[in-house]
Simulated scan of single mutants.
Amino acid sequence: MTNHDKTEGQRAGMHFRRRALLKMTGAGIAAFGMASTISISTAKARTMTQDWDKVFPKSDQVDHEKIRFTNRYGITLAGDLYLPRNRAGDRLPALAVGGPFGAVKEQSSGLYAQTMAERGFVALAFDPSFTGESGGEPRNVASPDINTEDFMAAVDYLGLHERVDRERIGVIGICGWGGMALNAVAADKRVKAVVASTMYDMTRVMSKGYNDSISLEQRTQTLEQLSRQRWADAENGTPAYQPPYNELKGGEAQFLVDYHDYYMTPRGYHARAVNSGNAWTQTTPLSFMNMPILSYIAEIAPRPVLFIHGENAHSRYFSETAYEAAAEPKELMIIPGASHTDLYDKMDVIPFDRIESFFGDALV
C-alpha cells in the first residue's frame, strides 16, 4: 500500500469518525445516535414485480424469468434467471451471481448475470435474504451466515433446473458479496469455480474498520453501543435503522462520492436497494464483528478462484490479502485506472472476456 493510500485511508477514517458512522460499501461499521425515522415497507419489499425495472437495458439475446427459491433457513428468495436465447438442447453451465452489499438484483448482479447469459451461461442473480424482493423479517438486515447460505441455495436451484448441468456450476460475487461467495465456495464443494469482483470482506471491515484502523477501545465502544441498542429495539418491538446511505453533505472521501454516483443517480439508483437512500438496521454489524468469513479460503482449492479489482479502488487491499491467503490455482487481475464502482457497471472496464474464458476452462 502506498503512502498516498494510507493518507487517503486515514483522512477517510477521520471523516467517518466525525460523522460517527463508517459507510464502507454501504454497510455501517457501527450504529451511533438516535434511531432513524426511515420507514421500511415490508409488503413492498416482498412483492415481486414482473416489470423490467433494471438499471440496465434488456438484452435481445437472452430469455429472462423471475423466479423464487428457498434457502436452508426457510427464507424465500427472489431471483432473475437469465438463459441464452439461442441455446442448444444440451444442459448448460450455470452461474449464481450476488452483490454488491446493499444492492439488489436489478443492479450490478443482474448486469453480470445477463452479460454471462449472452455468453452461453445460465445465470441467476438474486436478492439476499431480508432485502429487495426476497423474504425475511425484519427488512434490511444482513448476516454473514445466512447470506453465505443464500449463495448455496442459489446453487440448489440451479442444480435442479432442467437446462443446467449441475456438475458445471460457478459463482460470481461482487463487492461485499465477493467475500460471501468465497466463503460459500470454500464450504460448498458442488461449485467448480468462483470469481470475486471488486471484493470486500465485510466481516473484516465491520470488525476492524477500513485498513484495519479501529482500535480495541473503539471496537469495544461500538459493541457496547450495539449491545444496548438491542434493548431499545426489543422494547420498541422493531429495529431502529441507520441514517440513509449515500447522501452527500460535502467533504466526503472520493470513494463515497463514487458510491453516490452509482446508487443515487440514474446510473444505478433503485428504490429497493439499501444503498439507494435506504438503510441497514442499526444492529446489523453485530453478527459480523466476531465472524471472519475468509478463514478457510485456501480450501477452495483445487478449484480455481479469480480476483478482479480496480487499480485505484480504495478496497483493493481486500483482494490482495485474500489472494495471498488463497491456494493455487488462483489469479489476481488488477484493472488499470479502475475505481471500486467502475466494476459495478462499466462495460468497457469489467473484464467479461476473461470471466468468460475463466469459467469456460473451469466448468468443463
Rank of each mutant, 00 (worst) to 15 (best):
T198E: 01
M199C: 12
M199K: 00
D201R: 02
D201P: 11
D201A: 03
T203K: 01
T203C: 15
R204E: 09
R204F: 08
V205G: 11
V205H: 06
S207E: 07
K208E: 15
G209R: 07
N211D: 15
E217D: 10
E217S: 07
Q218H: 02
R219K: 08
R219S: 09
R219E: 04
Q221F: 09
T222D: 00
L223K: 11
L223M: 14
Q225L: 11
Q225V: 11
L226M: 12
L226T: 14
R228W: 02
Q229F: 01
Q229E: 07
W231E: 05
A234Q: 13
A234K: 10
N236D: 15
N236S: 12
G237T: 11
T238H: 14
T238I: 14
Y241F: 09
Y241G: 13
Q242L: 12
Q242A: 09
Y245T: 10
N246V: 05
N246R: 04
E247Q: 10
L248T: 13
L248Q: 13
K249S: 10
K249I: 08
K249E: 07
G250I: 01
G251Y: 01
E252P: 05
A253I: 05
Q254V: 08
Q254M: 02
F255E: 05
F255Y: 01
L256R: 06
V257F: 07
D258V: 01
H260C: 00
H260Y: 10
D261Q: 04
D261T: 02
Y262V: 13
Y262I: 09
M264Y: 02
P266I: 01
P266N: 03
R267W: 06
R267L: 12
R267Y: 11
A271F: 13
A273I: 01
V274I: 14
V274D: 02
N275D: 04
N275M: 08
S276V: 13
